[in-house]
Amino acid sequence: MADLTVSVPNLSSSAFSQLKGTTTRVGADGANADYRSFTVSKAGEYNFKVNDTFTNVEIRNDRNEVVTILKSQAEATDASARLGPGTYTATISQANRAAGARDYSLDISEKQNILVTGAGAMLKGTAQPPGNGDTGVQKHTFNVVQGGTFTANLTLPDTRWAMMDKDGKVVASSDSLKPDEQENFLQKPTYKLEPGQYSMVLVPPSKLKTPTDFQMSFVPRDPSLSETGTSQESAISKTLRERQARLQQWASEAKTTKTSA
C-alpha cells in the first residue's frame, strides 16, 4: 500500500525520521487515510509521535501484525515499540471523517535506554521545534547500575528537564538558561542516583526554529568538594541547593500534566 513515489526511510540509519503527507486515500474503515512504509535494519526501540489532532496511526510489520497504535485527540500523542529488522507500514487516518483530506506528520525517533555507571553516562538527541500541537517534549529511559553523585552537562540552552524514579518521584531537574557545560564545575548542582530505572522528560525551548542536535552527560562528582575545597556548604552551594528544591517542586507538579513526545 506504500506510495512508491515517496522515499522509504531506514530508521536504523538516523536518530530521527519524519513521515509527512496528506490523507488523500481511503482506509479500511472508509476514513481519509495515507500509507507510508519504512524499514529497520537493526533491532531497536522507537518512539512514534503523531503531531496532528484527531488522527489515528496503525503500524504493522511485514506479517501484517499490528506492532503499535496511536490515537490522538485534542493534542499530539505518542507510543513506543520495539522493532526487529524488516519492513513496516504505517496507516495514518483521520478520526473525524467529515474533515476531508488533511496534512499530517509522524515523528519517529530512537528511544535511548541510557546505561549509567560509576563513570557516568551520555545521552545524544535531536531537539525538534514545537508546532502543530507538538510540544517537542522528549522521553528517555536511564538505567543506573552503579549509583553515585553526578552533575549534569546539557548543551541545549533554555531547556527544562526532570528525571523521575519508578515511583514517579523527581530525583533531578533543571531549567538551563545557558548550556550547563559553561558553568563552573564546582557551582553545578549535584544529583544522587541510586541503582534502578529512571525516566526523563526533556522540554526544549519554545523558540527553537530548526532541529538541533544536543548532548546531555552525567559526570561523577565528589559530593564533599566545594569552591573552598572543604565539605562546608558555601554561599553559592546554598543558593543552588535552594534553586534545585524549587525546580524539583516544579517538575513534581509538571509531571502530572499530559504532554506528548
Score class of each variant (00 low, 15 high):
Ile236Asp: 05
Arg102Gly: 06
Phe214Gly: 04
Asn56Ser: 10
Asp62His: 11
Ser206Cys: 01
Arg63Thr: 05
Gly86Trp: 08
Glu65Met: 07
Ser72Asn: 10
Ser199Arg: 14
Thr117Tyr: 02
Met122Ala: 12
Gly86Asn: 11
Arg160Ala: 15
Thr126Arg: 14
Asn132Leu: 09
Gly120Pro: 04
Val203Thr: 13
Gly27Leu: 08
Asn56Ile: 11
Gly133Glu: 07
Lys192Trp: 00
Thr89Trp: 00
Lys188Met: 12
Asn184Thr: 07
Lys188Leu: 09
Ser93Cys: 02
Ala31Phe: 06
Ser80Arg: 13
Tyr35Ser: 11
Ser234Arg: 05
Glu75Tyr: 05
Val57Arg: 04
Trp161Ile: 02
Ser93Lys: 01
Lys188Thr: 04
Ala15Phe: 07
Ser217Met: 11
Phe142Gln: 08
Tyr35Thr: 11
Trp161Ala: 01
Val26Arg: 02
Ala28Arg: 09
Val67His: 06
Thr135Gln: 05
Glu183Gln: 13
Asn113Ser: 13
Arg221Cys: 01
Leu240Pro: 00
Lys178Ala: 12
Arg60Val: 14
Gln215Arg: 11
Lys42Ala: 12
Val171Gln: 10
Ala235Ile: 07
Ser174Cys: 03
Ser13Ile: 01
Asp158Ser: 12
Asp103Gly: 14
Arg241Pro: 00
Ala152Lys: 15
Val40His: 14
Tyr46Arg: 12
Ala31Thr: 15
Asn64Pro: 02
Thr126Lys: 15
Gln232Cys: 02
Met122Pro: 00
Asn113Lys: 15
Phe150Glu: 06
Lys192Asn: 15
Thr117Gln: 10
Asn132Val: 04
Pro195Asp: 08
Ser252Ile: 00
Ala90Tyr: 03
Val67Lys: 10
Ala79Asn: 15
Phe185Pro: 01
Arg82Gln: 13
Asp175Ser: 13
Tyr198Asp: 05
Thr77Tyr: 01
Ala245Arg: 13
Ala251Lys: 10
Ser206Gly: 02
Ser234Met: 11
Thr53Gly: 05
Asn56Pro: 00
Val137Ile: 14
Ala79Cys: 07
Asp78Met: 13
Phe214Gln: 04
Ile236Tyr: 11
Ile114Arg: 00
Ala31Lys: 07
Asp78Lys: 12
Thr39Asn: 15
Thr77Ser: 12
Asp34Pro: 03
Pro130Lys: 14
Met163Asp: 03
Gly125Ile: 08
Ser80Trp: 05
Arg25Gln: 15
Leu208Val: 04
Gly229Trp: 02
Lys255Asp: 06
Ala162His: 04
Thr141Lys: 15
Gly133Ala: 12
Gln138Pro: 03
Thr117His: 07
Asp29Glu: 12
Gln249Arg: 11
Glu233Leu: 13
Phe16Gln: 11
Asn32Leu: 07
Ser206His: 10
Val40Glu: 06
Gly229Ala: 05
Gly229Ser: 03
Thr5Cys: 04
Ala28Asn: 11
Asp29Cys: 07
Asp213Gly: 09
Glu58Lys: 14
Gly118Glu: 05
Leu83Val: 10
Lys49Glu: 10
Val201Arg: 15
Val26Gly: 00
Gln73His: 10
Thr55Ser: 07
Ser93Gly: 09
